[in-house]
Design a protein around this nucleic acid. Sequence first.
DNA 1: CGTAAGATGAAG
DNA 2: TTCATCTTACGG
Length: 194
Amino acid sequence: MDESYVREVLEKGAEGAAREMLGWVLVHDSPIGKISGRIVETEAYTQSDEASHSFRGQTMRNAPMFSEAGTIYIYFTYGMHFCMNIVTGKVGQGEAVLIRALEPRSGIEIMQQNRKQQSVFDLANGPAKLVQAMAIDKKMNGHNIFNDSVPLHLLAQPLAPDESIVSSPRIGISKGTALLRRFYVKPSKFTSRS
DNA sequence: CGTAAGATGAAG
DNA sequence: TTCATCTTACGG
């Protein structure tokens, strides 16, 4: 379960990676301390998928999606929110996994400050919430987690024996609703609204 | 240029 | 259920 394994999973593609990444730990070595959380909800987006930002080809905004696996893709939406993806597949492909929810692990006090929320269940149970909680900066957009100078990391971890993976339609999209490309850990209490 | 829609969140 | 808020992409 080392970095080469993480790279291997991401390079294989968005759908598989979105499943595999459940249980992994996302770490931000921030200037004021380590913040981390366990991934409990993801969504897969590929280029052939109408709902994907990459569906109509490469643009200024989605360019990171076409870069190499491990690239960070952060997009701004609804005039006020940032969401983060980890790019998968091969260079030129245009696919990524959206991280939708985390179970807070370390730096919980920092998360509470960043989010102005006390409840551990309301710190990272949504894609824009976790970006805020982990203090993930839009400057990280386009950088790669395998680059040593980038303070964001993924640690591969297995699910607990009593946990399983559930798939469902993705949230907040109007196209591609027939596809079951949202994955979450059952019975985690840290997922976003269903 | 003008503009509609958006991979959301919070409050009512 | 409603609305805040503004970038992006696309059409004219």
